[in-house]
């Protein structure tokens, strides 16, 4: 069985390499892409979609299918990480550590002992002791809101400058991961639970696919944003521009949530119990 798999991989890989020789050369001016497709985008993007940034228009409008399935791929990466790593059964650890916040005492509670509620008085801490570092925590608290604001700017400004849903989503996810690194995993899970991140990831993909389906229902083709004109109350050209923003928001949501979700699973080896 393993030999069969190996032979399949070698054959398909060889076929891929062989066929890639038939591609036109890089930067070949007489290739079909350079003679028909690119000039059309360069000449007509502004009058078709009123988006100054051609890359965004191609990514979210002309080649909307590609980006829809890219978003789906990112979501399934998060799902795969979840299915591979998440340990669902709760085997109680040998000992748990709690900090009594008013006095600063650390309690070690053996297996079977009475575990205090995680409240204002008691906070659970990692068994590998991580000292409370004021400098790092405060700096990250100062910086995180600015990173999140910048991420929203990158998502919303994709029409005019480099940026868009993927980049903005990654920056937003990095801000949350920075919070998790500077504090700890449990505190971050209290702000954004695993259920929230899974939900946001799927909602992002649904926003994208739902926009496409809405176009279909309103009488245009799938992901043909001209159909959204009657719903948004604008002319078809602006409708394409606005729909790109809606779609990019969905992409940003999905990328943010999946990044954070993968980090949760990787940093705690699937237990989501202890970790940075």
């Amino acid at each position: 069985m393993r030999l069969l798999g190996f032979i399949t991989v070698v054959l398909l890989g060889g076929l891929l390499f062989h066929l890639s020789l038939d591609f036109p050369d890089l930067g070949d001016a007489s290739s079909p892409a350079a003679t028909h497709v690119s000039p059309y985008y360069i000449e007509h993007t502004m009058e078709d979609t009123s988006v100054p940034n051609i890359v965004t228009a191609v990514l979210a409008d002309y080649r909307g299918y590609d980006t829809l399935f890219e978003t789906a791929v990112i979501f399934s990466a998060g799902l795969a990480c979840f299915f591979l790593m998440r340990i669902s059964e709760r085997t109680a650890p040998k000992a748990r550590f709690y900090r009594h916040l008013p006095t600063g005492l650390t309690l070690r509670i053996e297996k079977g002992g009475k575990i205090p509620e995680d409240t204002r008085e008691f906070e659970r801490i990692d068994s590998v002791w991580v000292p409370y570092d004021v400098i790092i925590t405060m700096t990250c608290r100062l910086v995180v809101p600015f990173i999140q604001l910048f991420a929203l700017y990158v998502i919303a400004h994709g029409h005019h400058s480099p940026g868009g849903g993927f980049q903005g989503g990654v920056i937003f996810g990095a801000a949350i991961i920075l919070y998790a690194i500077s504090n700890n995993l449990r505190r971050t899970l209290r702000r954004m639970s695993e259920r929230m991140s899974a939900l946001f990831g799927s909602v992002g993909v649904i926003i994208y696919g739902g926009t496409g389906m809405l176009c279909l229902l309103l009488g245009a083709g799938f992901l043909d944003y001209r159909g959204m004109a009657s719903l948004l109350g604008v002319d078809p050209v602006s409708a394409r521009s606005y729909s790109i923003l809606i779609v990019e928001t969905g992409v940003g949501l999905a990328v943010t949530a999946v990044m954070v979700w993968i980090y949760y699973n990787l940093s705690s080896a699937g237990k989501q119990d202890e970790g940075l």
């Binding site: 000292p131 570092d133 400098i135 790092i136 700096t139 990250c140 100062l142 910086v143 600015f146």
Partner: peptide, 20 residues
């Protein structure tokens, strides 16, 4: 401004990890 805030903090964090 942001590099001025974050760069010394990063150095501090790396040094702290070394000590630990």
């Amino acid at each position: 401004v942001f590099v001025f805030i974050t760069s010394p903090t990063a150095t501090h964090a790396i040094l702290d990890a070394g000590v630990r």
